[in-house]
Write a protein that binds this DNA or RNA. Sequence first.
DNA 1: TTTTGAGTTGTTCGA
DNA 2: GTCGAACAACTCAAA
Length: 474
Amino acid sequence: MTDSALVWFRRDLRDYDHAALYHAVKTHARVYCAFVFDTEILDALECRADRRIEFIRESVVELDGRLRDRGGRLIVRHGRARIEIPRLALELAVSAVYANHDYEPLAVDRDAEVEHHLRGAGIEFRHFKDQVIFERSEVLTQGGRPFTVFTPYRNAWLKKLTPFHVQSYPVAHYAGRLAPPPFDTALPSLEELGFQRTNLGMLALPCGMSGARILFDDFVERIDEYKMRRDYPAAKGPSYLSVHLRFGTISPRELVAFAIHRGGQGADSWLSELIWRDFYHMILDHFPHVVAQSFRPEFDALEWEDAPDLFAAWCDGRTGYPLVDAAMRQLNQTGYMHNRLRMVSASFLTKDLGIDWRLGERYFARQLNDYDLAANNGGWQWAASTGCDAQPYFRIFNPITQSEKFDSAGEFIRRYVPELAACSAKQIHAPWRMGGDEQHAAGVAIGRDYPLPIVDHALARGRTLERFGRIRKL
DNA sequence: TTTTGAGTTGTTCGA
DNA sequence: GTCGAACAACTCAAA
């Protein structure tokens, strides 16, 4: 065991409970670590001020520090990963490259090419399950097919789970194995990567493994209230760990193990959310067509509206529906949107404005710090009724009812739509219903200081039922 | 093969 | 205001 290996970090920016790193140090005498700021991904980003690049960079800095503490270093490259990784592997004369599975179609294609290059040079490419508990075909129906409905999938997932599946990969083997590269390596600055600073530092979003730890420790104190609070955007209900799960700065096994061990309604409800994560990754893996098309092909025939002005109003948070606007402004200002509001705003775009879910999905992909293709796509198709939902005809949200139910005091709305701050809790959900005197008292003129609703919900609902009715008769 | 129960997060209507 | 049923009406997964 004198040979060396390279561990390629991607969406797993941590130095503990890491499948690829564990297997590498167990097998090889010398282990190098690398991360590539992939220009294929970076160049496709529309905005040069992107919170995620900053988040990744901060997390990479911390990861490098932790690896140094263990005798290693993180080699950071800026270029095309397809080229950089095989090149680095040759330069370091390793016998194998280790990485964790990535299920996104572009990543699958990239990894296949990297593997091909490496094989040609006599270098092995070994990859492991890491970011989910069960992947690919590990959880199947009795008929041997992938589940397409969540609840039976969840039941089968829970039935299959053993302590073994959430066991942490130990770090004991690291000792003396991690090695710095035999050349100088420096971390590119944000500017060198071609990006500008964002407001990330101003947001309460701690980065890296240490940031994940802070959020997790805080959530542990609140988890018993999770089920109760999770639907109310003004409350501190969620774990806020999505971005850390996205970039692997926390271990999914650790979270699942904790939820199981903790038990109770809060932890069970949160565990379900973690199972949704596995579910949508499995769906993407088995049905990659969902990236560009409806999960159910018959819904590709839906005739969506071409309405760029309405779409722009939705993006900017000026639809005239306060909860929708508050949600979109939260997204634009912070890169985060509460889960309940993701459903409300997605339902509004697809069912009230009749706009193709793909446009909304793309906008979320641009804005969300925790953007994950599998989960975002699954969520949008669910909201648009084109996806894995057993009861799609039930899903037309009433933006006013949702507002009254989940932000009854208007607390969340006031936070992001200050124009309406002085409206009463009763009127804030549909401010256009205020009379002239009431508007005057609230210090807002609807139609001037805050927009009138851009569509009538009742009419839009009718149009949506017709839109879906048309394809049913085909 | 046929049957049966159930389906993340809803809305509306009428008593 | 509250409650239950109906709703636009179907598919999945297991028995």
